[in-house]
Write a protein that binds this DNA or RNA. Sequence first.
RNA 1: GGAGAAGUGGCCGAGUGGCCGAAGGCGCUCCCCUGCUAAGGGAGUACAUGGUUUAUCCCGUGUCGAGAGUUCGAAUCUCUCCUUCUCCGCCA
Length: 423
Amino acid sequence: MLDIKLLRNDLTGVAEQLKKRNFVLDTAQFQVLEDKRKTLQTATQDLQNERNTRSKSIGQAKAKGEDIQPLLAEVADLGDKLKTGEQDLSALQSEIDEIVMGIPNLLQDTVPAGKSEDDNVEISTWGEKTAFDFEPKDHVDLGAQNGWMDFESASKLTGSRFVVMRDGMARMHRALIQFMLDTHTTEHGYKEVYVPYMVNEDSLYGTGQLPKFAEDLFKLEGEQNYYLIPTAEVPVTNLVRDEILNADQLPMRYTAHTPCFRSEAGSYGRDTRGLIRQHQFEKVELLHFVKPEESEEALETLKRHAEIILEKLKLPYRTVVLCAGDTGFSATKTYDLEVWLPGQQAYREISSCSNMKDFQARRMQARFRNEQGKPELLHTLNGSGLAVGRTLVAVIENYQLEDGSIRVPDVLQPYMGGCTKLA
RNA sequence: GGAGAAGUGGCCGAGUGGCCGAAGGCGCUCCCCUGCUAAGGGAGUACAUGGUUUAUCCCGUGUCGAGAGUUCGAAUCUCUCCUUCUCCGCCA
């Protein structure tokens, strides 16, 4: 969430900046609620003050053995007045909170204008689009051999947008996870964490999936109100919720492999073929917790760590910076890595790296002790390093041979017992 | 799942209705003393938030696991919930 003080002091400025996102902030409504809040809060606190002062004098009088009956009579009607005041204030406060929680983050100046993904700006490319002297197949056709990728069985077991993988494909999928984690922990300085795949509502509020994006989540039945995680970002970022870290603990870098569960409501008909858009997929996530002045550079570092995975796998890709209209709710700036898929003759998103600055930290009260010894909100960043299922798609499409067999990338061979080819 | 105990500041820990935002200790910061080391003395040190402020200061409000209640007044009493620990049971 945004800083409420910023909204109070510069409401029109904030509204102006949000236009870049096509987000319309009802400033008049906010102003009215804020004015009411100010009056009501001051009045209520005055009443509380009066109650406290009087109660104190009753205590003192009683201690001296004086008659407190007259004093009690004076306070008689205070309680009711106070109660209504407190209730009204808390109702008003929730109304304001709901509005503030629904406001997206402000964008960095370097984010290009634009409405949709068509306006994203390419900033770099790596590798040549893989050339074939035959007609390359897409991953669904390649995966159909030997039952490597079996969508029919998955739909029998569960439904659409799931997959069963077998044999070498399942092994390569697992190898990718190990390879990514090992690279990040041994070469990029990340700490590996294992976290719950179900989280409570507080965690989802902390990272911003709630209250606005509940329809994207799988909620479990039962009394606990747990949700399946849509990304490791949720449990890992919430590790610092309500914590005050020492400055020397920053920067903190975590990597985690988790499955991710997404309802994909609203994406009916999109990417229905193959592995691209599933209800359940694996992801290796990268997270940084940093001091505010370090976060913009940290985004470059994090993005680079994700790029290196693609380069080690020798997969051609490009990096784009998302335009204003395509940048996610909590982010100030996002880079997407898009890998080349010969089967689709297109670049497809395989990693998304974002700097949330203090937007999540404020919701979570995630802080560190600064040089003055005062708690200060830290900045959070996260990115995929990488989405495993889509990486598998990229590997098999780019490494396919004419007979449908698939070469194993050099860096994966040690993770597959030296296997060099899936056939 | 059954029985019991407990949750207080960065940490440990006292506190059973008013003088408690909270003793004491540890840690940390500043100062003094001490010609190394070791040790000693003094002061300060929770968070959020409202008013005011560039910021501090100041004044107020809220917060002792969470929520509700009793009361003029709750860390303290009552209820519900959550979490942790111990013992028993079950179990990958």
